[in-house]
Nucleic acid binder design. Structure first.
Lengths: 113, 113
DNA sequence: TGCATATTCAACCAAATGGTTGACCGTTCG
DNA sequence: CGAACGGTCAACCATTTGGTTGAATATGCA
């Protein structure tokens, strides 16, 4: 059926990969730099990055001899929508929306409904 | 690190298990009834249900010789929060929040920030 | 040119996953 | 009681997953 969701959820099921995503949240990174904090071979990290890329959660672009990894947060949308179909997540959306609101207010932006 | 998230995402990564969750969205079901539409042994489905239970996404309660399976949608909260930390899901949150707001307004409740 | 750096490839391994089958156990019912 | 039903257990199997190591490739730099 929905192999795309398979890949996204499977990619997120590994703690190393979730940590990598958190790192990429800060900034784009080269493969070697992603691997640095882990007690694991560069090859292993390279494989994790491939899994994330095949799930569409990150993209990789080679510039010179360096391959840059970039978060593609939009890819999580389908999975997020799927999860929200199970309802009873309104409270969370509220929290998330409130923090979003606060950010916007700090930017002195008018928010209207 | 966060083994709970590991289990939730891994549980969601299988299409059979996601289909089961969709079925349970309708109503609580006995193990045999869950298994009925699948071209797969009862044992296999039983195992899938154990995976879902160990992830906390469903609960199982035995009454007589029948084991009833029940959705526990709150369990998806952690995973949903984690995913939302990747931002750029505001559009979705906004939609969800708006429908939440509409519900609240229909209840004639004052919503303030 | 020649060396260092960045990354992947290939082969291998152990453990986990998703499935099967047949025997088993507890419960209900004629 | 004894048979049928609901479900699990145990053993097994093939495939996938997450990791290793050593060699290979490609780029940058002195």
């Amino acid at each position: 059926m929905d192999k795309h969701l398979d890949k996204i959820f499977a990619a997120l099921a590994d703690p190393t990969r979730r940590t990598i995503l958190n790192m990429l949240l800060e900034d784009d990174m080269a493969v070697t730099d992603v691997a640095e904090p882990f007690e694991m071979s560069l090859t292993a990290i390279s494989k994790h990055l491939i899994v994330l890329m095949q799930a569409g959660i990150i993209s990789q672009e080679k510039r010179g001899r360096v391959k840059w990894c970039k978060l593609e947060p939009d890819a999580l949308r389908d999975a997020s929508i799927w999860m929200q179909s199970f309802g009873q997540l309104e409270a969370i959306n509220l929290e998330a929306f409130e923090s979003f609101l606060h950010q916007e207010l700090e930017k002195d932006t008018t928010v209207t409904f």
